[in-house]
Simulated scan of single mutants.
Amino acid sequence: MKWLLAMLLGLLLVVPAAADELRPFAIEFTERQPGNWTLDWKQPLASPDEDELIVPQLPANCTMLGRPVVRAAPMALIAHAEATCAGDVSGGTIGLPQLVGNSDALALVAPLGRPVQALRLTASEPQATIAAKPERWTVARDYFAIGTEHILMGWDHLLFVIALVLLVQGGWAVVKAATAFTVAHSLTLAAVILGYAGLPQRPVEALIAASIVFLAVELARGKGDSWTRRWPWIVAFGFGLLHGFGFAGALREIGLPEGEVPVALLTFNLGVEAGQLLVIAAVLALRAAVGRLVPKADAPALKAATYAIGIVAAYWLVDRVLA
């Protein structure tokens, strides 16, 4: 019983105090005039006290001019530099060897008169080669991975999905609710990225936290006949529209390669869905294991998870409203 309870609550116990959206290291390397480039990058910070600037590595035929200009942003450093490159950068590498653990970076390289290409850097592969012509498959692969990481590392979206599965419990109701959530946030995400809709990010993040608190309250009420339990797919759809604004905010920070926006948008969303399905499958499998092996532990574990979700989400809500 103890180890099953630990498995159910383990995920919640490691949730960070603040649920930041996926914030990869973002780099833009753009050729303004033949041979003259600008380098702009956003470096996420692990804590407010961190102030050491990490400078991306440029191709061997490129030289940075002077020192970068740096300004502070919330939990990030924004830097700008000028560079010159002797000849074509194709075949050269851009890198960030300081990446560690699960950190990653997305570099957008824009040679003059040629398509922008997106290059993903990770701790295991901190350098990427700039291609003469970007391949569509590379964009699809990188944005699929970014989407999957976003749902698995975006704790607020993750807790919403977990709470939704616990509320609906199983069967076709879970399928309907998950599908409604998927359709809704896909619509909002596309609308924002294509310029048809938009909301300020800070209120969106507060409302996302409020959506998790709402589900936690519904869970705490038990198995009564509530509107949410009767039509969970409607609730999932409504909150899915809201969460789509959160996904869009993260994707806008990362950036999209010109000429490949539809592919990047589609594969990012598919990555989000892949991560979401993994979470749903894990929660259902865990509940089934608890119900089969130690059925008496199911109710206490659900209650403990409910209060853990509610407490964490309430903290996020207060923190985001007062921030």
Rank of each mutant, 00 (worst) to 15 (best):
E135F: 11
K2V: 15
E28N: 13
E50V: 10
A118K: 11
R120L: 12
V261S: 03
G238E: 06
V263Q: 07
A236K: 03
A305V: 03
L108G: 00
P56K: 01
I54T: 12
G255K: 02
M64N: 04
A191S: 09
E218N: 13
Q169W: 11
K303Y: 09
P24A: 10
R252E: 02
M7P: 03
G35W: 09
V165A: 03
A107H: 00
E260Y: 14
L266E: 08
I27Y: 10
R67T: 07
S90M: 06
L278W: 09
W231G: 02
L164E: 11
T138G: 06
T179R: 05
V69F: 14
K2D: 15
V272K: 03
L112D: 09
T228E: 00
I151G: 00
G147E: 13
L45E: 07
A209P: 05
G222E: 10
P111K: 08
G35I: 07
A6S: 12
V89S: 04
R292L: 13
A288M: 09
T93S: 14
G222N: 11
A323G: 06
C85K: 07
R229S: 05
A86P: 09
K296I: 13
S211R: 03
A301S: 15
G95P: 07
A288I: 01
E21W: 10
Y143S: 12
R71G: 08
H150L: 10
L166K: 05
A314H: 00
A190W: 03
A110F: 05
D298C: 13
G222T: 02
A145V: 13
R32D: 14
T84W: 08
E52D: 12
G275C: 14
M64D: 04
I162T: 05
L4E: 15
L11G: 15
P126A: 02
A216S: 12
V263C: 05
D225Q: 06
V165P: 03
E135I: 12
L277M: 12
Q43T: 01
L96N: 10
E52C: 05
Y196R: 13
V279R: 04
P59G: 08
C85N: 02
V89Q: 06
A216W: 08
L9P: 14
